[in-house]
Simulated assay, not measured.
Amino acid sequence: MSRPQKRPELNERAQHLLKVLVERYIYEGQPVGSRALSRDAGLNLSPATIRNVMADLEDLGLITAPHTSAGRMPTVSGYRLFVDTLLTIKPLQQEVVQQFRREMGPLHDPEEIVETASRLLADVTHMAGLVSLPRVETVTFRMIEFLPLSEQRILVILVTNEREVQNRIISPARRFSPAELTAAANYLNAVYAGKDLNAIRTSLLQELQSTREQMNQEALHAAEIADLALGSREARKRKPFVLAGETNLMDFDELASMERLRGLFAAFRQKEDLVHLLDRCLESTGVKIYIGEESGYRALDQCSLVTASYGIDEQTIGVLGVIGPTRMEYERVIPLVDLTAKMLSAALNQKALTPS
């Protein structure tokens, strides 16, 4: 995790040369030599002067020479200084903005909105996009409605926490008549409105298993349908985040070794470390950036994570972001993550206001 630390004092020339070096390294992925730096910097400086400045930057821990190469590359501290003070944010291309609006705007299911946001982040950045799912401690049941469809399928409309609406289709083992569905919905709404959703399903299943013979037909139907209708939501709650584009990371040389990929993919599968990291991001507003070992997790030592929070009714409920190499194009990724968070919030708020 990034910690406040004393920032090296650099004069304007050193800052400019560091900025050029980082930008060139991000673009090419190769250590930058003094000759290339002199050519790109646009300053009337001798090669000796450039080498002296680079030596000073190396002494300050901002750049390093990998192996025996004469070129230099930024360290985590160099990236941090670059991101915090030297970065020039690029405006997003209107085509990208329109693409996000076009693909996220018409969606109605909250989970589909989240999955689309993750996929778009991965597609546009060519890195890994992830979105944490809202972590609600208590889900309060408000109302449920069952609408019969064809071929024994039933549309479930579930309202929770005042305004959150979930639509899903279930396929019970037998056919329920419209009258049976109406009676089951009326029973659930009358008996369980205002109660915790998890507790409702647990209670119904216990009754179904232990007192099936004594249950009236209305309650029996309600328990059978609720097992499907409410159970699918619980399965989704156990998934902490949606991840897309993880294989994009194989295209970056610094991440492409089998050992490093194994560590990354293991972290994606096990989830705990990423969940803890995303939880830390929930605590701050705006865009949050972890560079290399700042995350505190070894699997991410060669990666950066750029995140922003999203929410409903000005309440933060989740985090989204991009995982890529430390030499990612921060000037492009940062505004993209910020835009996606705002669009996801807008889409979820609009969904919350639309009960049908």
Rank of each mutant, 00 (worst) to 15 (best):
Y192S: 06
R175Y: 10
R168G: 13
I169V: 09
E180A: 00
A190F: 03
E207G: 14
I200C: 01
A179S: 14
A179C: 08
D196Q: 08
F176A: 12
A173Y: 11
A179P: 01
A193F: 06
K195W: 11
L204Q: 04
I169F: 11
P178N: 06
A179T: 12
Y187D: 03
K195D: 10
F176D: 06
R168M: 12
T202W: 14
Y187P: 04
A185E: 06
D196E: 12
A179I: 06
I200Q: 05
V191M: 05
R174V: 13
R174F: 11
A199Q: 14
S171D: 12
I169C: 06
L188T: 03
L205R: 07
P178M: 00
F176L: 05
S171L: 09
A193E: 08
G194I: 10
P172Q: 02
K195C: 11
S203Y: 11
A190T: 13
N189M: 00
L197N: 08
L197G: 09
N189V: 05
S177A: 05
A184K: 08
A179N: 07
E207S: 11
N167K: 15
T182A: 13
S177M: 04
N186G: 13
L197M: 15
K195M: 14
L205E: 10
A179M: 04
I200Y: 09
G194V: 05
R168H: 13
R201F: 10
R168W: 08
E180S: 08
P178Q: 05
L205I: 01
T202R: 15
N167V: 11
N186C: 06
G194K: 11
T202P: 03
S177K: 08
F176V: 11
L181C: 07
R175L: 11
A173H: 14
I170E: 02
I170S: 03
R201E: 11
Q206H: 14
N186K: 09
S203H: 10
L205G: 06
P178D: 00
P178I: 07
L181E: 03
A190Q: 10
A184E: 01
Y192P: 06
R174H: 01
I169L: 00
L188A: 01
T182I: 12
A185N: 00
A179Y: 12
R201W: 13
Q206D: 13
Y187V: 04
E180K: 07
L205C: 07
R201L: 15
A185G: 02
A193D: 03
Y192E: 04
A199N: 01
L205W: 04
S171V: 15
E180H: 05
A199C: 01
R175I: 07
L204P: 03
A199Y: 09
R168T: 13
N198T: 14
